[in-house]
Computed example of a mutant assay.
Amino acid sequence: MAGSTAVLAAILIIDIVAFGLAIGAEQSRPSARLETDAQKDWTYCAYRPDGATAMGGAALALLLVGQAVAAVASRCFCCGAALRPGGARACALVLFISSWLTFVIAEACLLAGLVQTAYHTGYRTVYFENPPDCETVRKGTFGAGAAFAFITCLLTSGYYYNFSKSRVNFHRREATIGMTPL
């Protein structure tokens, strides 16, 4: 196998754990219900405790760490040594661009879910008026982040593999003059 197996395994494990945490955050989204005070003068939103914020934050951080491991190991594709021309280099370039695109989308989805989860309204209204809007995270916000985290995992692993494959046994030809009898 081309490249460092330990680096490839680290990328896979970190990104799969981030995927699992994002799925967990989707499953434990907070819910809210309207409650009234003891005198029945005010209505307010009561949120149940959730683990979505912690799991979403951990998924966000781990996805960033996985992408950083791949970037450091490959010297960010553009700052390293020359690569052998061919299909592996072209595939590595396409996967590099695709993995960063899906990484940005996954991070945006997870961050949007975190912001929505962390923002709990404290609005109160008089009991007879319209009830307050108890905002919660939309269903699928963390799920979209999890899906893009999984796609990022696949693309980043493929990128690192093809990058390593295009670096194997690449030696530049030296300028020589052939000294054959004929």
Score class of each variant (00 low, 15 high):
residue 118 A to R: 12
residue 44 Y to K: 12
residue 136 T to R: 09
residue 25 A to M: 05
residue 67 Q to W: 14
residue 38 A to C: 00
residue 59 A to L: 06
residue 160 Y to R: 03
residue 30 P to W: 02
residue 117 T to W: 00
residue 54 A to R: 02
residue 117 T to R: 10
residue 94 V to K: 12
residue 64 L to Q: 02
residue 48 R to E: 14
residue 101 L to M: 07
residue 97 I to T: 11
residue 136 T to A: 12
residue 135 E to G: 06
residue 39 Q to A: 15
residue 51 G to I: 03
residue 155 L to Y: 08
residue 56 G to I: 07
residue 140 G to V: 07
residue 88 A to Q: 07
residue 136 T to P: 02
residue 133 D to R: 12
residue 47 Y to R: 07
residue 55 M to C: 08
residue 23 I to P: 03
residue 30 P to L: 05
residue 50 D to L: 00
residue 132 P to Q: 07
residue 106 A to H: 04
residue 125 T to D: 06
residue 122 G to H: 12
residue 167 R to C: 14
residue 149 A to L: 05
residue 52 A to Y: 01
residue 40 K to A: 12
residue 157 S to C: 12
residue 120 H to F: 03
residue 146 A to Y: 12
residue 52 A to H: 04
residue 133 D to I: 06
residue 70 A to L: 03
residue 125 T to Q: 10
residue 135 E to I: 01
residue 136 T to N: 13
residue 138 R to M: 07
residue 165 K to H: 14
residue 86 G to M: 02
residue 33 R to I: 06
residue 44 Y to F: 14
residue 62 L to N: 07
residue 62 L to T: 08
residue 147 A to V: 11
residue 34 L to Q: 06
residue 91 C to R: 12
residue 129 E to T: 14
residue 78 C to A: 11
residue 94 V to M: 06
residue 26 E to N: 09
residue 50 D to I: 00
residue 121 T to H: 09
residue 59 A to Y: 09
residue 71 A to G: 10
residue 104 V to H: 01
residue 47 Y to E: 15
residue 92 A to I: 04
residue 107 E to Y: 02
residue 131 P to A: 13
residue 151 I to S: 05
residue 141 T to V: 15
residue 29 R to P: 03
residue 111 L to K: 05
residue 148 F to E: 06
residue 153 C to D: 10
residue 162 N to R: 03
residue 165 K to R: 15
residue 41 D to G: 08
residue 75 R to G: 01
residue 126 V to N: 11
residue 146 A to S: 08
residue 143 G to F: 10
residue 132 P to D: 08
residue 28 S to A: 11
residue 100 W to Q: 12
residue 98 S to P: 00
residue 116 Q to D: 10
residue 128 F to W: 06
residue 94 V to E: 02
residue 27 Q to N: 14
residue 66 G to L: 09
residue 83 L to A: 13
residue 129 E to Q: 13
residue 71 A to P: 00
residue 140 G to I: 06
residue 97 I to Q: 03
residue 94 V to L: 13
residue 34 L to E: 12
residue 102 T to I: 07
residue 109 C to Q: 07
residue 46 A to R: 11
residue 155 L to D: 07
residue 69 V to A: 13
residue 131 P to T: 07
residue 166 S to G: 10
residue 141 T to P: 01
residue 65 V to K: 02
residue 54 A to P: 00
residue 80 G to H: 10
residue 143 G to S: 12
residue 91 C to L: 13
residue 65 V to N: 05
residue 72 V to N: 05
residue 101 L to F: 14
residue 23 I to Q: 13
residue 114 L to K: 01
residue 165 K to T: 14
residue 88 A to G: 01
residue 102 T to A: 03
residue 28 S to W: 00
residue 138 R to K: 11
residue 81 A to M: 01
residue 59 A to T: 04
residue 64 L to M: 13
residue 37 D to R: 06
residue 164 S to K: 00
residue 72 V to A: 14
residue 82 A to Y: 05
residue 68 A to G: 05
residue 138 R to A: 15
residue 129 E to N: 11
